[in-house]
Design a protein around this nucleic acid. Structure first.
Lengths: 186, 186, 186, 186
DNA sequence: AATGAATGAGCGTTCATTCAT
DNA sequence: GATGAATGAACGCTCATTCAT
């Protein structure tokens, strides 16, 4: 393995800590210590903790969407891919001990003036909504119907994740899938 | 107006701050300052910040369930009450500028070892689930069907709230309602 | 000696350091260490470093004006008191190894947004100007003449102090006195 | 316009910042950023921040003395040139919003061990004193009288600048001029 | 002549909590 | 039941400087 740059070490460490410990629970000192980097080196790569968080979310977005896409790539139809997304979410949440959605988690208790983080969260959710919309385009819905349905699906997906986190259990994902089947007439 | 006890002053101030500013964003000092109470007096009524949060959530639960119940009391059927709940949520979220759910918000970025807060959140969501279940009992579902449906509804409700918060817009509640109408065959 | 309060310990230590080392050269850590006080204890007495500086200047003003007043109390006339002030300044500056005027020194390189310090400096200089004016009232000047003369004297006093500091020598105070004698026709 | 050398860019940027923001308020990072120069390039031209300050003061001295000389060049006699210097100072201070004397300002709150800066300040003031002495040589004073008078004038000049800075007003320069007229019997 | 990457030490401030009375 | 005084630890961030290339 190549020697990692400071930036890489920071973002990897911070990503793990932000996700698993929480943004507010993770201090700069902890990040640099675990990354094995001097504080000033860190501030040469990132202007603020907020900026680290933004990059963390950007990477998480790319990674998460990629994994989702891969996971459902074997599915044939749009509807099946959407249902398949629930299986992906179930697998994922069980693997991370129901730590929930990194985007939801960071946005709910944000220090004042860190709007760029909220922006990043919104971006992610909108791109996920777009993904759902795209999958539905393959099906027999007109544009308006597809849009309405996509939003309903997004609500269910988000609810499944946050409720699993609270319940520390996968049943909300199961329920989400059964609800989706009804909406998609599967 | 009666002279408020220290405890009362603390819990009211903390409740407002925890909800609108966030649990991690609210310091003990801010609470006692805005409540006009000495720090040691506060620690006589509450052993820790965590304990304040627990009481905040207990009260919020009682209040919120009460308001919901009142709001839908004019509705005749269980199904209509559930649909009415979405109107309640929409009103509420618009009034608080999409600050979201106090229970979701506190649980997503919790300091380690504050499990009693997570417990309280779970309690609230389970009682809400029970409420949905109760309303469905009035309808023509068998027990198993009702239980499955109630969980699906809960997922949708939770998703509507968190997604409205992220979007800073009510459309997820609208989408939730339309999804619910499909599930409830309304 | 009585046990000193935290506030007293802080203000005494800070006063010494601010004056002899400089405001920017003195860190909070140095203050608390030399005062033997916990950092948080300090921040219970003072909201900021700026606030400590303001109190330092207030006390310095009172002390300095008092010492001046005492020093020249043996002098009979206003003119003689003004001349006597120069002797006072000379003594003082030699005792502090030409560290100069605490008010001048702090105002020349002030962090942005610490206007209350600049205000305090202005206050001090205005009160010193008033003192000069009062002394001149005893003499045969009309109000306008007295006012003009008082300002001229202030300029000379300030110049004597800053130039002594730069020169690390008392000659500017001597020169100031000789200039004053000319202006006062002594 | 010629492409500026790193050294030139640094010294120009630093000069502006040191004077208008203050020496302690100006960080190395701010200098290199505003100068558009790499940090290591800067440290190739200057061994330390102190060294930049010394060069800043040297240039400021040359420039300031030159401007003064130009300003009063129309005056016929030494006495008139000295009086004219006050007009120069008044113009200058009003143009820089009473930022005061770069030499005074830097010397009053100097990090320990930066003696070369204090030396430079002393040099400047001594050369200014020499200038006054030279102007007085044209007049009917014997050497001793001229020396005494020159020092008195210096005190007044310095006092006018520092007091204008504190007052954020030109009256001390006006007062200085009227005092000078008395001393010079004008 | 110029650079990008890295550093240790320190900045001023706030955290939730405890103690003596 | 209530308080004022005090605390150790951590916060996010900036300082002037150096090193390898």
């Amino acid at each position: 393995m190549q020697k990692q740059s400071v930036k890489e070490k920071i973002i990897e460490t911070a990503s793990r800590l932000f996700y698993f410990e929480g943004y507010n629970q993770t201090g700069i000192n902890q990040i640099i210590e675990e990354a094995g980097v001097a504080k000033s080196s860190m501030y040469q790569s990132f202007r603020s903790k907020e900026e680290i968080a933004v990059e963390y979310l950007q990477r998480r977005h790319t990674m998460w969407m990629g994994h989702l896409s891969d996971y459902v790539s074997v599915k044939k139809s749009g509807k099946e891919k959407i249902i398949g997304a629930m299986a992906y979410i179930k697998d994922w949440l069980e693997n991370v001990e129901y730590r929930g959605c990194g985007f939801q988690n960071i946005v709910t208790d944000l220090p004042k003036g860190q709007g760029s983080i909220a922006d990043q969260v919104l971006l992610h959710k909108n791109e996920l909504l777009d993904w759902v919309r795209e999958e539905l385009k393959e099906e027999d819905y007109n544009i308006e119907e597809g849009d309405i349905l996509a939003k309903e699906i997004m609500v269910i997906v988000e609810g499944a994740i946050i409720l699993s986190q609270i319940q520390k259990n996968s049943w909300p994902v199961i329920s989400a899938e059964s609800a989706l089947r009804k909406l998609l007439a599967l």
